[in-house]
Amino acid sequence: MSHTNTTRRRDSDSARARAAALRTDQARRERRRRIVVIASSIVTVLAVVAVIVVVGTTSKSGSTSSSPSTRSPASAALVAAVTGVPGATLDAVGPGTATMPKAVSDAALTANGKPLVLYVGAEFCPYCAASRWALVEALSRFGTFAGLQQTASGAKDTYPDTPTFTFHGTTYESGTIALVARELQNRDGAQLDSISSADAALWHRYTGQGAYPFLDIAGKYVEVGKTVDPGLLSGLTAEDIAQRLSNPADPVAKAIDGQANVITAAICSATGNAPAAVCTAPGVMAAARALHG
């Protein structure tokens, strides 16, 4: 009898040990399954993200390397149309739909004893593209550009291929004001012009890590970012835009001529209203009233 009981106990212990071993084995298999499920989920998502990032970055660089530089000398007719907008049109437009620059009380910005206008932009930037029309128009009232070139904003950016001018390689002569105009990046985003440390400090002071376009008018007025809406220029050629500047009822004229009048008024406040013929024009004076609130 005792021999039978001992045998039964041995058999029972053995069965429990086998069951425990099976449970341990199953737990190991389940842990492995968990890890496979979790790891495969993570790897799948990361793999898809990696493919997207590679496709995105190679497609952008591919378009960059194949896009030719689109800088070309601005035609005399185009320059004449922009710099020769009839006075009657400018007076009728006044401030138009211009964005008012912000009045600041910085130390006077000068160069060679003349009030300095500082522009910092980039050729790829669509907001710079739109604003340059008004800048060229306004600055032409105080001096003369030489070597002005045409270009278009970046092909892969918002408002792609907005027709515009570029200040890269341009010279400007004026007896009244000085101009420092820098295009820091080209149409593809590559580095272009350099900027002095003093100008860079001023630019960063108002734009943080740096934003385009930036305009500082003699330490009295500052513009950052969009002024003229590049959406207004969508689908238009440079010649189309220039032609519309002479129609005071055209939204393009109201935006660009209006902004030019406001920039002119701001510059006049730094030049003591010189030259008088420019600064006392009705359109400029209307813009000045809007500028001063």
Binding site: A122, F124, C125, P126, Y127, C128, D157, T158, L184, Q185, G189, T207, Q209, G210, A211, Y212, P213, V224, G225, K226
Partner: peptide
């Protein structure tokens, strides 16, 4: 307010993304 500007930081452009 949409004070839109092009960043000099290149690809990092929250405004461009959030207004696209």
């Amino acid at each position: 307010p949409t004070a839109l500007a092009c960043p000099a930081t290149g690809a990092i452009d929250c405004t461009k993304v959030t207004t696209s």
